[in-house]
Design a protein around this nucleic acid. Structure first.
Lengths: 205, 205
DNA sequence: CGGAGTGGATTC
DNA sequence: GAATCCACTCCG
């Protein structure tokens, strides 16, 4: 019997390609464009683990994610959420697999690292500032639940992180956002809007 | 709390649709395709009870269903299979809801009814030849388990069908397929192939 | 929701 | 017109 695969799909390393890359040629089997060839390029080790998708730039549609507003009693702080909604258990400290990854421009030049507000404290053994940043950024980018940080008691988390770390939340100590913080942020936004308004005026003149 | 659902799921009648149909738009919440919209169409009263899907013509992909080969001891007949794999319990004698349905061509003209081999006997009260045919045809079309027919003892089935009928199997008495039957079928196939071969020859001349 | 596979626009 | 790219559909 003819080996269909060898006729319609070929995948191989190719000297014209950077090392470790493969070229695949797939012949279209049906439709108006039957017989045409699609070419795909692969590099090794591309996982499709959505829990590990780092916050790379994507199309604008990614930003349509809705904001969830959670009302609560004045002065009381809600710290517990169910862990629902995930299919697979997450590995503890999976964020460490992001270590060493850096944003770069299209030329491959490293971009300046971001800095986190001083109030954010890392949780867990050997969790560096870098991991903290990657962990928070990924959570904000990927999660579809409210981001609270680690809400377990500090002593419990230090004593036995393997038990008390919540892998759905970033490796940051829970941050209490008060009325003050909200006001300050609102002021920042309205300041930024005024600046933008002026910039637009100057542009039109 | 903001009603997340009202933001991410909308379901409504739509003037461009035939009457009674609804369009639902669901925004993907996470993953690489977050923000993309899936659109679903619903008409009233369409149950999603897969056990009731009659064998209407569908795309060719339906025929990709695998053949299950069950090895067994020579001369012994395997008659018991687990009822596994179904999500919801099936109604007893649900096949009767297919009564009165007839195949027709695209113009709506009724097609000639099929005839079943004489060896097939109906099981259950008031199960007609018609229901027998629809039951067997639907089972062959839809089931992902081996089709055995009703394997309970004949007296038990007659005395108390409500208890002993297996709703995963068509309303036909278990049929034993022997070596003879297989040989006869193989002969039919090879005869049909020869006829096809000759027809092709005549066509080319 | 991801991935395979195709249609169709774009580019040279 | 071929090569390439991107958007989209369909299905599991």
């Amino acid at each position: 019997m003819l080996d269909k695969m060898s006729v319609e799909r070929k995948r191989f390393e190719c000297s014209a390609l950077p090392k470790g890359w493969q070229r695949e040629e797939v012949v279209r089997k049906s439709g108006l464009s039957a017989g045409k060839v699609d070419v795909y390029y692969y590099s090794r080790g591309v996982r499709s683990d959505a829990s590990l998708v780092p916050p790379i730039r994507q199309t604008a549609s990614i930003f349509k994610q809705p904001v969830t507003v959670i009302k609560q009693m004045e002065g009381k702080v809600k710290t517990e959420f169910k862990h629902g909604g995930q299919e697979k258990p997450k590995q503890l400290f999976w964020e460490k697999r992001l270590e060493g990854m850096r944003p770069c421009d299209t030329e491959g030049n490293e971009l300046h690292a971001m800095e986190l507000p001083k109030g954010l404290k890392a949780v867990g053994p050997h969790v560096t500032e870098e991991t903290l940043l990657q962990s928070v950024a990924t959570a904000l980018h990927v999660s579809n639940q409210p981001i609270t940080g680690q809400t377990g008691s500090k002593t419990a988390l230090e004593k036995n992180p393997g038990v008390f770390i919540n892998p759905d939340q970033p490796l940051v100590q829970a941050v209490a956002v008060g009325e003050e913080d909200i006001k300050r942020q609102e002021e920042r936004v309205s300041l930024a809007r005024k600046k933008l308004e002026e910039a637009l005026k100057n542009l039109k003149q």
